[in-house]
Design a protein around this nucleic acid. Sequence first.
DNA 1: CTGAAAGCGCTTACAG
DNA 2: CTGAAAGCGCTTACAG
Lengths: 375, 375
Amino acid sequence: MTTIREIAELCGVSVATVSRVFNQPSTVSREKREVVERVARELDYRPNESARALATKRSGLIGLVWDTDHRRPGWRHPYLQELLIGLKSALSAHGYHLLMLATSGSAALRAVGASLADPVAYVNMTRRHHLGGLVLIDSGSDAPAFAAFAQSGLPCVAVDVAVQGPRATYVTSDNVGGARMAVQHLVAAGHRRIATITGPPHNRPATDRLAGYRAAMAEADLPVPPEYVVVGDFYRPSGQAAMRALLALPDPPTAVFAAGDEMAVGAMLAARHAGLAVPSDVAVIGFDDIELAALVDPPLTTLAQDKAGIGVAAARAVLTMVHGGEPPVPAFLPTKLVVRASVSDGPGSVGAARPPGSLPTGPTPTPSEASECAS
Amino acid sequence: MTTIREIAELCGVSVATVSRVFNQPSTVSREKREVVERVARELDYRPNESARALATKRSGLIGLVWDTDHRRPGWRHPYLQELLIGLKSALSAHGYHLLMLATSGSAALRAVGASLADPVAYVNMTRRHHLGGLVLIDSGSDAPAFAAFAQSGLPCVAVDVAVQGPRATYVTSDNVGGARMAVQHLVAAGHRRIATITGPPHNRPATDRLAGYRAAMAEADLPVPPEYVVVGDFYRPSGQAAMRALLALPDPPTAVFAAGDEMAVGAMLAARHAGLAVPSDVAVIGFDDIELAALVDPPLTTLAQDKAGIGVAAARAVLTMVHGGEPPVPAFLPTKLVVRASVSDGPGSVGAARPPGSLPTGPTPTPSEASECAS
DNA sequence: CTGAAAGCGCTTACAG
DNA sequence: CTGAAAGCGCTTACAG
């Protein structure tokens, strides 16, 4: 690898000048600048990032915390891939790379006597590697570590968890609004006995979606008996169990808003097992719009999150702070109602948005529409 | 951040000694070692990785190339998340972090006048950041850049693409063996007219799966008329189109091996549209075992790839080379036949493995088994 | 506009 | 076993 020094010698200038050509080109006379640039190109010069980081205390790297060594081996983030695409593209566009940090169970952490439980672990990694900041993806139980990092004063943006700190912010979907839309859709379809299957009480999206549900119910002057709120854990079986419980009620709901598509699928399953048809006997609406949603039978009506958009927003937020800007206000990305077939117009329909042809006229066999395909 | 110097002063030793305590502890007398360790702990000392990398030319980072800014916006890697989990965990266990490199369209590359098409881009990034090596994930058209990097002599392990070079290797599934098993399963179910929907001709898994198909057909003394090999692109619509073509043949197949689950789902769709039932009229077997496979109706029989295992194998391979070892031989991970319901025992069945109860006795409505669930 | 110099924090032969 | 010293490659006040 050629260094700044070789270039300097070849050009008959000082290393300081060469350095300036790359960092503050306007402060160098045009002639010298052009010579240096030409020679650098000829020698295929590449700055040594370690040296730069050492001198400047900045590395051009953004850290990503996504804990995979979790108690839950089967844990799947509902939209990690899309999130990553958005995050990485937006970071790339500004010349930053994404460093996926080794987390719990890692030798890196053990070496320094830390563990994931150790809230300073993230701070250390960030400093050691001169990371510009961290993007934190909630994996269910990192809340204390996230909170601690957010307090550190290092740039921090969390996804789906409301952290706070001097240079911390977060991005998430507008879960309250999305849930409200979901319930409104149900109400517009004529339902009045609407239950919800919610997520874990300490999960922010879960509580927000529950709040949205309650708000919409109140707006529609609909009662929410306590037994209409069943707690799940975002996984399918919990949705199934919840629906079973709901259907066993003396006064069962005619429609259910599940706070996540996996749970919604579980709910549909339970309905079917109980001999009920969706949507005619009981309507189901989900949240997320995972790939599966379009493929179950009937296809699931749901609220789509802007998955890549969340990644992009997270990227923008860190970069803003890295570049010295104020921490952006938390971003709540809009969700979108995706009308499929798990909710039909009810008797009291007041005209739910239903573009002609958007609902299958008969039982749609799965695999469904080719139009859902990737390419 | 405390530095090595502060510790040295506090302990009354030289910085060299402090450094040795962390890097070659056995060369330091026990007393000094213990003092240094204690003080370091008290001061919460963390080595500056940039300084280390500068001095040693090693960074403790492994690069990951996964091009997202691709022509195909909807491109989804069939098992990226699982791959990442395996890769990251195995790397973490040895104290390495994963650096996701900005690729095409990135400012980082533009800044140095490079693009993804520029085969030296990867080499530059690797050197600039003192990466231990690179893991390359094929995204469809990076072959030239991958090949160039593999030649560079830098540690390199590719997933699903057969690179070669002084310190290069690759890991992939045993696609030949898997495809052979798929066809054998079909043959055992009594099929003789077996067609295949293959992937792009320049894709290694595609050609290997085709080879496995041909091998199994030859072993069973079955003819392979040219029109029984239809080329797809791994996406669902191509599988659908291929099946349509197959069914239009004067002598249509009774069974189809699709080289990927997405294409298999497309094929099932086409069969249904043609008024044929799967598996009674035409059997379909896939490859990958994506989540969707268990959820379509009928659930898709397929060959499961060891997704996380591929990540782990890739991690081990780079680390071996990083630590000075010889490049491991290419790894071909075993695949596993997952019997579901898209292939039934045919008239000439010779007893295909079919655990009691593993096949639904009637048409199974989707969403299917709760036992497929995550948690 | 330009250069000499100090410094970023750590590692590693080289002597002793 | 230990220390003094040079060096990794780059940046940035400080003078001029």
